[in-house]
């Protein structure tokens, strides 16, 4: 499989009045063609910052990329995204044509002043100016149909507020697809939706992904959703990737104490009911600086001094399972 995106040693800080937030620290991962990479992490673990930096939509300042690189199609085009000016033409083209994104709150990604149809066709004409008006219309209607909006012609002229949450999310997906992107990033696209609607959207993303030959980065704090949709999983904690690997491996054979604890702490619908083993304590403040392992204060398997003082290195097993913990030195 070909790598389509490679993120290397990425560190991003936010410089705020109250102090410095180390939002990402040495983040490494790659995305292969046609795969779904699931990113799991709790609030503040840096999931959104990661994808915002890939798309070049981080607000800088207060954010600053301190180190690292983001390469798109490292084997062929090798675009170093982190070096491109974020408002330049190249990046702008990358943003819709190659990588596009759907957000948690689809309401805020549409302008309330224009109909959904107009906004989708505008996105299309911007990137494919050669298309005639009738072509644009037929492409858009086709897309709306594909994402499961019933009678697209009727919905085309409707405004965002006339759509339900699920419908809006479908329209958002249609808009993200106008340019046939190679990577679709979905940042908690179903968190605001009901389970039945969530299931519809997950199903839709799955089918769209194979139809359009895309890779997908799917972000969620719900381990069950991630387990269901991903080929590979990236586990993040406090701005670090603590574990990554093939989905079966990470879920069935978790290596990092955080992943293990997380799996033990959530109720699972498809397994016998067991008492839950909560992770004690709470997520440290984002301003806290960790000289050693960021999970130290809550880890039940910690080794003592070394975990407190020394950053754990990344260890890669033969099957591609990576972990960053002193237990796996």
């Amino acid at each position: 499989m070909q790598r389509i995106l490679e993120v290397k040693d990425l560190s991003i800080n936010f410089y705020l009045r109250e102090g410095v937030v180390h939002a990402l620290t040495d983040v490494n991962f790659e995305v292969f063609e046609n795969e779904t990479l699931g990113v799991i992490g709790e609030s503040g673990s840096g999931k959104s910052v990661t994808v915002q930096s890939i798309l070049g939509i981080l607000s800088q300042p207060p954010a600053k990329i301190v180190s690292g690189s983001i390469r798109f199609e490292p084997e062929s085009r090798n675009l170093e995204l982190n070096l491109l000016p974020t408002y330049g033409d190249t990046y702008r083209n990358v943003r819709w044509n190659d990588i596009s994104m759907i957000f948690q709150e689809p309401m805020s990604s549409f302008s309330p002043l224009h109909s959904i149809g107009d906004q989708i066709s505008e996105a299309l004409t911007l990137h494919r100016p050669e298309l005639s008006e009738t072509d644009v219309l037929s492409v858009c209607l086709g897309l709306l149909e594909k994402v499961g909006i019933p009678s697209p012609a009727m919905f085309f002229k409707r405004y965002p507020h006339e759509f339900s949450g699920g419908m809006r999310q479908r329209a958002m997906i249609a808009m993200a697809l106008v340019c046939n992107p190679k990577i679709l990033i979905a940042d908690e696209p179903t968190t605001a939706l009901d389970v039945t609607i969530e299931a519809q959207i997950l199903e839709l993303l799955e089918s769209i992904k194979s139809e359009f030959n895309m890779s997908m980065i799917y972000i969620s704090h719900d381990l069950a959703v991630i387990g269901e949709i991903s080929d590979r999983i990236l586990v993040m904690y406090l701005g670090r990737v603590v574990e990554s690997g093939v989905a079966d491996e990470v879920i069935d054979n978790p290596l990092h104490p955080y992943t293990r604890a997380l799996l033990k702490s959530i109720p699972k619908i498809d397994q016998p009911i067991e008492s839950l083993d909560p992770i004690e304590g709470s997520i440290p403040s984002p301003f806290e600086v960790h000289t050693g392992c960021p999970f130290y204060s809550r880890c039940t398997e910690r080794l003592g001094e070394i975990c407190l003082r020394q950053k754990p290195a990344h260890k890669t097993y033969n099957n591609g399972h990576k972990v960053s913990c002193h237990l796996h030195a």
Partner: peptide
């Protein structure tokens, strides 16, 4: 350090 508690 050995004990498991919030160091608050």
């Amino acid at each position: 350090m050995g004990s498991f508690s919030n160091s608050s």
